[in-house]
Amino acid sequence: MIEDLFPLLLTRYNYYMAVIIMMIGLYAMIAKSNLVKKIIGLNIFQTAIFLFYISIADVRGGTAPILIEGSNALYVNPVPHVLILTAIVVSVSTTAVALSLVIRIHREYRTVEEEDLMRMEGGSG
């Protein structure tokens, strides 16, 4: 069992790294009271997924997928890259919307702390 674990850890470390980063992001989203920090957590979470995608696209010894006449080089899989470009766009827009909401919340309540907001909302009914 133990001797199996070592190569497993070694060969699949990209997954574990992705999971660890994801958990850091999730932690920030849940534990932080500041709304901006929550957004940062969300970004970290999303970035973990991007890294995960990019790492599965990797082919050992592969090169950039640019077709050159006559060359039979090993290419990495380009499709996840393309997908992740789209996902990054999505992520950027989400962040933009979230930040603009935070700005408006700040204008309205003069705070970006969730605890204060909950207290104020509870007070006003």
Binding site: L26, M29, L35, K38, L42, F45, Q46, I49, F52, Y53, I56, P80, L83, A87, V90, T94, V97, A98, L101, V102, R104, I105, E108, Y109, L117, E121
Partner: peptide, 27 residues
Amino acid sequence: GGKGLVAGFNYLVMGSVSACFILLGIG
């Protein structure tokens, strides 16, 4: 009013997490 903003923000956070899960599933 502000309540819609906070509701929208919470919706956004939950919704984005759900989207991330779906993205992971697709991956």
